[in-house]
Amino acid sequence: MSSKIFNSAAEALAGQLSDGMVVAAGGFGLCGVPVDLIMALRDSNAKDLTVIGNNVGCDDHGMWHVLANGQIKKVILSFAGDNKILAQAFMSNEIDIEFNPQGTLAERLRAGGAGIPAFFTRTGYGTIIAEGKETRQFPNPDGTLDWFVMESGLTADISLVKAWKADTEGNLVYRKTARNFNPMIASAGRLTIAEVEEIVPVGSLDPDSVHTPGIFVDRIVASTMREKHIERPTTRPRATKETV
């Protein structure tokens, strides 16, 4: 009987990677990043990769390790801050960096996963983001006309996502803001692998509460990550006599 469960990230990726592939990975900063799968990608030594993600790693974390191993030739992202390798690569043109407005990137992945090759958005009209792209006027609900920019859908050869729980069918539930780009990236992968904190038996997830239906998930691995990292820990002081 076929099973989507694999014993490790390395086993889930074994034989699936080749040089020049397009890999998408979920996460926003250090939140909701499939850390084990990314380290297995690093260990695969697959080269000339194009990597899609909001950040593509932060210093010493996540996709940063794949960058540091020289495996990436192009990144498609929204935010490259907090990443010294990308900063250096940007100034020296070593890596092709394609900047996308964050909402455009999210929608490109959603569209790609939904079989939509292109769409029009108001975002970026009149900026360098629109250069070389088709622009067209469409009416607003009030009848006035605005200019829109055509953007293309994105798909990936392999999508790596992080979820809180999966059942053995691959139905996924994310936790809090760790959801971020993961649902769209799950749908945009020709092969989608989910790294999850807990694998639960079929029937134990409320079908009404599933965030990503199992049809989008081909393989599942249990995360070995013991400690989640925080980029900017921020607190407020407790009131002196407050009872909590």
């Binding site: 926003f28 900063g29 939140c31 809180w164 809090k176 820990p233 921020t234 407020r236």
Partner: peptide, 20 residues
């Protein structure tokens, strides 16, 4: 608001990557 010390949740951040 920002969380109290000892109540930080790595899965709950704002767009500036601060815990909330």
């Amino acid at each position: 608001p920002f969380p109290y010390e000892g109540e930080l949740d790595p899965d709950l951040i704002n767009a500036g990557k601060q815990t909330i």
